[in-house]
């Protein structure tokens, strides 16, 4: 017994080293489950405060570019106003309101909220950014995030009361279902951690006629992303010699290095769809 104590005392530093290593590695390898734990939520609040302070300064340098983008989006929305259209039939008029159901039986599926990006990186293999809206503003895990131009940038993976963490499209574990707008063939977009301006799209059969500059939009198979949102344009076309598929290099529509304002899109039917999927799994 005495020898054991002597042994432990002699190598006490080494054991502490091992203990701290194991703690760190445990944090690292359980991150996907761990990020819902309380510890990181508190960390999120603290880093969020620092990031907000920094962001107030940084905003001044990016204001001009952001203004241009907002203007462009406003311009496209102005064109959609009902006042722009003349209707020959004067007995009916178009009603648009924000309540979930209107008298024509239309219901709202997606709701958008605005938020500001307070911190983000593009240099790592796993890039995240932090936004200044959290569970107090109704943000939940798995919501889609769009840039101020309306193109896809990522999805929410962790929420604290006032801030949320968004997994950017520039993340090696990120996989999003997308469509080639012209041919309607769907594939999965991912990132190879090489260049933050380009994403990789596989699974498009070579029988499709793909040209440089073709538009890639989000597909309709996702619970969190609204369909038909811009993702990027084809920049380089390669054929995979082993299979009958293209390997397309996609130029992202959003500039991830200077994201400022973003939209968070909530799918109001998300929970119902998810419950249905879970139930189906149980029945099979």
């Amino acid at each position: 017994m005495r020898n054991i104590f002597l042994f432990i005392r002699r190598f006490f530093t080494f054991f502490t080293f091992l203990l701290l290593q194991v703690t760190a590695l445990w944090f690292l390898f359980t991150y996907n489950r761990f990020h819902r734990a309380k510890g990181l939520g508190v960390g999120n609040q603290i880093t969020g405060w620092f990031n907000t302070q920094y962001n107030t300064v940084e905003d001044y340098f990016k204001m001009k570019e952001e203004n241009r983008r907002i203007h462009k989006l406003n311009d496209s929305l102005m064109n959609l106003l009902p006042a722009n259209f003349i209707r020959s039939d004067t007995s009916t008029h178009l009603l648009t309101d924000s309540i979930p159901y209107d008298t024509l039986g239309h219901y709202r599926q997606y709701r958008q909220r605005v938020a500001q990006v307070v911190y983000g990186t593009v240099n790592a293999e796993k890039n995240y950014f932090q936004i200044n809206k959290g569970s107090k503003d109704g943000i939940k895990d798995d919501m889609g995030v769009l840039s101020s131009e309306g193109s896809l940038v990522g999805k929410v993976i962790n929420v604290s009361p006032n801030f949320s963490v968004v997994m950017s499209l520039l993340h090696v574990q990120n996989k999003v279902n997308v469509l080639v707008k012209k041919t309607k063939s769907s594939g999965t977009i991912e990132w190879d951690a090489k260049d933050p301006r380009f994403l990789i799209l596989k699974n498009i059969p070579v029988s499709d006629s793909i040209l440089k500059g073709d538009t890639i939009i989000t597909g309709s198979y996702s619970l969190s992303m609204p369909p038909g949102k811009m993702v990027g344009t084809v920049a380089e076309i390669n054929k995979d010699p082993a299979t009958n598929f293209f390997i397309l290099k996609i130029k992202t529509a959003a500039n991830f290095a200077d994201l400022q304002q973003v939209f968070i899109v909530e799918n109001l039917q998300h929970d119902e769809q998810e419950v249905l999927l879970e139930d189906t799994k149980k029945k099979m």
């Binding site: 445990w26 990020h35 990181l40 960390g43 911190y119 796993k126």
Partner: peptide
């Protein structure tokens, strides 16, 4: 790590 959102690395 808390800033970089990579706990433990």
């Amino acid at each position: 790590d808390f800033f970089m959102m990579t706990p433990g690395l």
